[in-house]
Design a binder for these strands. Structure first.
Length: 408
DNA sequence: TCTGGGGTCCTAGGACCC
DNA sequence: TCTGGGGTCCTAGGACCC
């Protein structure tokens, strides 16, 4: 989905279209002002320049991106860059709603969907046929061809057919998503998930990109390695320092040289992905591995001096986690805490129980044991509680069905 | 004016078992 | 009279993703 959170917000605040808007933080909802005589409603939006706090931008409209604003950027930093941009608070419930809408619309056309976050999916289009479309009838039986050359030709023709069919399917998907949500998305059709993901960003927003394996040298190799899903800031910086600034350069790097510098597994993986190779399946059903809640405080808290406040937040986190767990229909055996200190260093502590738990009190008790083992000398900026080693709760078919549609 | 919140996967060491 | 070779589970940290 294109600039998903921001685009959802523009649906309800159309007067912001065309303006730089940033989504982030949580305490600055627009004020509605009703004119007592006319009854006309005008909204007063928060100005990014007035923001004070520790929030980051989750999404920026394309107009805001032109001013240098982008996701994961601190809002205070963004405020210095573009003080007159509009700031809207995040509304996850609303985004989840639109997420379900677009996924449902897609599922009607292409049922083999892999969830990849709230605003992304992978689709297996192998067996998708548009109903009512003239797709040349039944697939040709290659065995009917009289000789090898004819079989080859028939195979090529059938591949070409599939290619144009996939393009029509992608067009139909975009139309269905727009009908269901009023939102635009960008789609790429490619031989695998790796290439589809990269290609889907080549023509954003509202893109439709068709990419064949043979296109990799011309269209993928010029891109920086960072565009590959799995090459983040660290690996990218290291590649840069080694003089590798494009995916093509990575493809031409020696395999053993890469493995020596990045480890056997990661080095071999870098080599494969640079050549566009990826054999991962589209996974249509998956269970969550962990569920967590965390919060960053408005000011750093001391374990001694702010004990009461920390305790209240800790309990609240355990209660929200227990609610999430119940809503999704799971119990878990491993409870963990996460602490981030004033110097941004992060520690975690885990505790595994003999039997799965799900209640807030049991979670709070186990998390308390973890907390006792954590260093508590520095001031704390973030506290989190997590539960893993999950087992679905028997008898909660409703819950499981909800998980199947909500799991993002 | 430092850097959210929700996740997944990988690595590495140690305990423990056969 | 030095300490094999598997395997699993648990813990902690870190890179990465949306």
């Amino acid at each position: 989905m294109d600039a998903f959170y921001a685009s959802v917000e523009l649906l309800r605040y159309p007067e912001l279209r065309g303006l730089p808007v940033v989504i982030g933080g949580h305490r600055h909802a627009p004020q509605e002002i009703v004119d007592p005589t006319t009854g006309m409603v005008t909204r007063k939006f928060a100005r990014l320049g007035d923001y004070v706090g520790r929030g980051v931008a989750t999404t920026a409209t394309y107009e805001a991106r032109r001013l240098g604003l982008h996701s994961a950027q601190g809002l205070m930093k963004g405020a210095a860059l573009a003080p007159d941009a509009t700031l809207l608070p995040v509304d996850f419930d609303r985004y989840r709603h639109y997420s379900r809408l677009f996924k449902r619309a897609v599922r009607e056309i292409a049922p083999r969907i892999e969830d990849h976050g709230i605003d992304e999916i992978f689709l297996d289009l192998s067996d998708v046929r548009l109903s009512g479309a003239d797709d040349g009838g039944a697939p040709r039986d290659l065995a009917d061809a009289p000789d090898a050359a004819a079989r080859n030709l028939a195979a090529v023709e059938s591949e070409v057919d599939a290619w144009w069919r996939a393009r029509d399917v992608a067009k139909a998907l975009k139309a269905a998503v727009r009908d269901a949500t009023g939102l635009s998305c960008s789609i790429a059709v490619a031989p695998n998930k790796l290439l589809a993901k990269i290609a889907s960003e080549l023509d954003k927003p509202d893109g439709l990109t068709m990419l064949k394996a043979a296109d990799v040298p011309t269209r993928i190799w010029p891109l920086p390695p960072r565009r590959i899903n799995g090459i983040g800031p660290k690996a990218s910086a290291k590649l840069d320092a080694l003089g590798i600034t494009s995916i093509g350069a990575l493809a031409h790097a020696d395999l053993t040289w890469l493995m020596d510098r990045f480890g056997r597994n990661y080095g071999a993986w870098l080599h494969r992905v640079a050549h566009g190779e990826d054999d991962r399946e589209v996974v249509t059903d998956s269970e969550p591995v962990s569920i967590s809640r965390e919060t960053t405080f408005e000011r750093d808290l001391s374990a001694q001096r702010d004990r009461a406040e920390l305790g209240a937040i800790f309990t609240e986190l355990c209660e929200s986690l227990a609610r999430d767990l119940a809503r999704k229909g799971y119990a878990g055996r491993t409870v963990g805490v996460k602490l981030r200190f004033d110097n941004f260093a992060t520690v975690t502590r885990d505790h595994t129980l003999a039997v799965p738990i799900q209640g807030a009190q049991a979670i709070r008790h186990a998390a308390g044991l973890c907390l006792k083992r954590a260093p508590l000398t520095r001031r704390i900026r973030l506290l989190g509680v997590r539960i893993s080693s999950l087992t679905p709760l028997a008898g909660d078919r409703d819950g499981l069905a909800r998980v199947a549609t909500e799991h993002e």
